[in-house]
């Protein structure tokens, strides 16, 4: 077996089956001709090293075979910018989530174990969490591209969020939002006192079956009631008051934006409180396995809360910017109409 045969043996397995022999025969011809040309150039037979150099110059067998495969990309040029934007957002979310987790470890003195070890275990998940998110992003965009879905629908000028800033929702939209929110608020107020649900959430008797068949009591931590419960209630009331403002004076767009900014800031406060002010769960029948499960759950929940907190912060900035812009516009309007009247 000469070097060319060995080279072609490296190419063979990765070639498309129906054309394999045909392509190999053609490649064999190309490579033998190249060697003959080189030998003619040198005026002698090639040494083994020179033959190797000719084959190396043609490319690694895997790369050569890959060129004959179907031309497919997971994310094509059309969607690559979207993927790249998403990937950068994922990195930011990953960093923020892990910083938040690390801060909660630093502040929370109730947890046991060496601080460095706990911080290490948190940052140990940085890459796995990031890669999992990027994997999910890649698959989602690949599905969109493969099935030619339209993730943003058909573009319409009125759907532009920047153009919606000064547009009031209809009375039906505001009414429906208020009714839905009031139902939610009523449920939230009643929750601690509902006989069957109250203890489930606030009565410290959640029973979680562990794979050891041992029943272990897991309850929400004391931070939930009354602190978080009250904050969530206040945040919901602020939020629904923005819908009332929409309904009462649809022409005034600045006021609802201001109220929504406060609601979003309340969301940030709730998130930070949840992250920093104490354990979200307490365990009532600890076993090492149950504790592991709990810590795992708590870590994922912390990441989720950190992401939600970041989202609320962005929303607060967005509504704050809307408020300032709309207030400026509303202030400029009477001046303009006065100018028109006098001019």
């Amino acid at each position: 077996m000469d070097l060319i045969d060995k080279y072609l043996d490296g190419v063979r397995p990765l070639l498309p089956g129906d054309q394999r022999d045909d392509i190999l025969e053609e490649l064999d011809g190309v490579l033998r001709r190249r060697m003959e040309e080189k030998a003619a150039e040198l005026g002698r037979r090639l040494t083994r090293k020179e033959e190797e150099a000719v084959l190396s110059a043609y490319g690694h067998p895997i790369m050569v075979a890959a060129r004959y495969g179907p031309q497919q990309t997971l994310i094509g040029p059309e969607f690559f910018p979207l993927w790249w934007l998403g990937a950068r957002a994922v990195v930011v979310i990953d960093i923020v989530a892990h910083i938040a987790q690390a801060m909660s470890v630093l502040v929370d003195g109730s947890q046991t174990g060496h601080l460095a070890e706990r911080l290490g275990s948190i940052w140990g998940g940085f890459f796995s969490f990031g890669f999992a998110l990027i994997g999910a992003l890649t698959i989602s965009i690949a599905v969109v591209e493969r099935f030619k879905l339209q993730p943003f629908g058909t573009w319409k000028p009125d759907n532009n969020p920047f153009r919606k800033i000064g547009k009031a929702p209809s009375r039906v939209e505001s009414g429906a939002a208020i009714v839905g929110a009031l139902f939610g608020i009523a449920f939230w107020i009643a929750l601690p006192w509902i006989q069957s649900w109250g203890p489930f959430l606030f009565g410290r008797v959640i029973i979680a079956p562990i794979s050891t068949m041992q029943m272990v009591g897991v309850a929400l931590g004391p931070i939930w009631f009354p602190t978080l419960w009250t904050m969530i209630l206040v945040g919901s009331l602020i939020s629904v008051s923005a819908n009332f403002a929409d309904l009462i004076d649809p022409a005034d767009r600045a006021r609802p934006a201001l109220i929504r900014m406060f609601a979003a800031l309340m969301g940030v406060a709730i998130g930070l409180t949840a992250l920093l002010a104490g354990p979200l769960f307490v365990i009532t029948g600890p076993t090492s396995r149950a504790l592991d499960r709990l810590l795992e759950l708590s870590q994922w929940l912390t990441i989720g809360i950190a992401v939600a907190t970041l989202a609320h912060f962005i929303a607060a900035v967005w509504y704050g910017w809307q408020f300032l812009r709309l207030r400026r516009e509303q202030a400029a309007r009477p001046a303009q109409s006065n100018g028109a009247a006098t001019g």
Binding site: Q19, I23, E26, L27, V30, Y58, G59, V64, R67, Y68, Q71
Partner: peptide
């Protein structure tokens, strides 16, 4: 380059 030409012909 031949490495690009032959696969192109196949395609």
């Amino acid at each position: 380059d031949e490495g690009a030409l032959y696969p192109m012909l196949r395609r």
